[in-house]
Nucleic acid binder design. Structure first.
Lengths: 258, 258
DNA sequence: CAGTGGTCTAGACCACTCG
DNA sequence: GAGTGGTCTAGACCACTGA
C-alpha cells in the first residue's frame, strides 16, 4: 500500500529548489544556476529543467527573464489552498488548535424561500449543519453549511464534532474543485452574540462560500461568521510572470467585486 | 512608435482559444481538439501546442488529464489582478463610474508611533493621502494611503481628484509587483460615519494593503474602509492543475490567515 | 485496443543582459 | 561578444481513458 507514485524528474528537481528556497538555504534575491548548468548537474535535457523552473515561477518562488539568471523572489509564504476551504487546516497552519461544537444538524427537503442558496437544487434532500468553531478553545466563528445530498450522505457516517469535514470529504473522494468566496461585514445577530460572546450589532466578518466540482455542479454552500477580532483574511498576489508546465500544484485566482 | 512586439506562436494560439472560450463560442464543458489535431491545424510542433494549452490551463480556462481531451472549465470570470489594487479599475469592471474626493494630502517625515505601518521606513519623507471614493456618485469607501517618497514624488504631479493613482503610477513605470491584503471587519468611527453617511459603530469592511516591488521593498501602505452594504470582496479559487509556459499573464495567490 | 495527454530528449535560432 | 533565457522543432516512450 505504499502510495509512492513515480515522481517525474521535473517535479523532483522543482521540489528540491522549492524546499531549499523555503528553508532559506537559498537566499531571497540570490541567483539560481543557469539552465545550461542545471542540465549538467541533473543530467537531464534542457526541456526538463525548464519545466521545473516554470513550476517554481508559477508558484511565485522565482522570477525569470531573457538574458538573466533566475532570481529567487521575496517570500510568497507557504500556504495551501486547502487552508482557504478548511477551518481546521487553516487554524493548524497557525500552530493553533482547532475545535468545534455542533449546534444543529438536519437533513431535509430543499425548499424555495429558505436561506439556502439559489444554486443548490430544489426538490432534493439537503444536509444542513451549524457548528461553532473554536481556536485554542475560544469561540471564533459560526459556520452554517448546506451540502448537496450526494455529499451529505457521506456526512452521516462522520462525527461533525471530530474535526475537518473538508478533509474527510476529500479523503472520501469528493471532487471539491472550485470555490467562490464573498466577503463582507455585517452586524452580529443574537445567535452570533450569544455563541461568540460579543454584543449584538458588533462587526462580524462574513464569508459566504459556494463550492463546486470541476463541472460547475454546486456541492456545498457555506456561510461563515467570524468574530472579527479573532480572525481576518489575508490575500497575497503578485504580477509574477505566469508559467510552468504540469504537476498537480494548486492555483488560485483573486479579485474584488462589488 | 508602434509598440507591436512580435507575438510568440504559442501565445497567439492561446489567445485564440481564450477569446473563443470567453465569448462562449466554445461552450463550457466542450472538448478541445486533441493536441495531434491542433498540430495539424496550426502547423506547429507539439511542444508549441502544449505551451499554449498550458497557458490556458494555468488561467483556469481548461482542464487536462492523461487519456482525455482538454475540457473547457466552468467560467473563471474575466477579471484583472489590477482590479484588486485599483478602485477605479475595479468599479469600471462593474460597469459603474468611479469617483473620488480628496480629503487630505500631505508630505511629512516618517515618525515612530504614527499610524503608518512598521514596514515603511522611518526618518524619510512619506506622502499621505486620504480620499473618499465614490461609485456612481455614492460614497463607498475611505482610503488612507501612505506612499514611499520615491513614489510620492511622482504624485506631486498628479491630481488625486482626477482618477486612478494606481494606473498613473504604473504608467510612470512604478514597479508595483506584490500586494498583501488583510481583510477584517471593524466598527465605523466618526469620520467613517460622517463621510460614508452611516452610523458610528456600524460594520465597516476594512482592507489593509501593503504593496512592494519585486525585491520586497515596501512602496505603499493603504487602509481602505468600505461601507459594507456597497461593496464586498469576491475570491475565486480552484484546484486546477498548475501548468503552462511563459507569457506575461498575471498570477494571484490566495489564502486565509488569522 | 486505439487514442490521448504526460514526460523526456536533442538540437536549433533568436532576443536580451551585462561586462 | 559571451552568456543566458525564450521560443520552436521532431521524434520517442509511457500511462491513462474509453469504446
Amino acid at each position: 500500500m505504499s502510495r509512492t507514485v513515480i515522481e517525474p524528474k521535473h517535479e523532483s528537481i522543482a521540489s528540491q529548489f522549492r524546499s531549499a528556497i523555503r528553508s532559506g538555504e537559498i537566499e531571497i534575491g540570490a541567483e539560481l544556476p543557469s539552465e545550461a548548468a542545471l542540465v549538467e548537474v541533473f543530467g537531464v535535457a534542457r526541456g526538463t529543467i525548464r519545466q521545473a523552473l516554470a513550476t517554481l515561477r508559477n508558484e511565485g518562488l522565482i522570477q525569470t527573464s531573457r538574458g538573466r539568471r533566475p532570481v529567487v523572489c521575496s517570500t510568497p509564504l507557504e500556504q495551501s489552498i486547502d487552508d482557504f476551504f478548511s477551518f481546521s487546516s487553516w487554524v493548524r497552519a497557525q500552530g493553533k488548535v482547532p475545535g468545534q461544537r455542533t449546534l444543529e444538524i438536519s437533513r431535509r427537503l430543499a425548499a424555495r424561500g429558505t436561506d439556502s442558496p439559489s444554486d443548490l437544487p430544489e426538490g432534493e434532500y439537503l444536509v444542513h449543519l451549524v457548528r461553532l468553531r473554536l481556536i485554542d478553545g475560544l469561540p471564533c466563528m459560526i459556520e452554517r453549511t448546506t451540502f448537496h445530498d450526494s455529499i451529505g450522505q457521506q456526512l452521516l457516517q462522520f462525527d461533525p464534532d471530530s474535526g475537518s469535514i473538508f478533509e474527510y470529504l476529500i479523503e472520501q473522494g469528493a471532487q471539491l474543485d472550485q470555490g467562490t468566496h464573498i466577503v463582507d461585514a455585517v452586524p452580529a445577530n443574537r445567535l452570533d452574540a450569544e455563541q461568540l460572546e460579543m454584543e449584538v450589532g458588533s462587526p462580524i466578518l462574513r464569508v459566504r462560500r459556494t463550492t463546486t466540482d470541476a463541472s460547475g455542479q454546486v456541492l456545498e454552500y457555506s456561510e461563515d461568521r467570524y468574530r472579527s477580532d479573532r480572525a481576518s483574511i489575508r490575500i497575497h498576489n503578485s504580477r509574477a510572470n505566469s508559467a510552468s508546465v504540469s504537476t498537480a500544484s494548486r492555483r488560485a485566482n483573486t479579485f474584488a467585486q462589488s
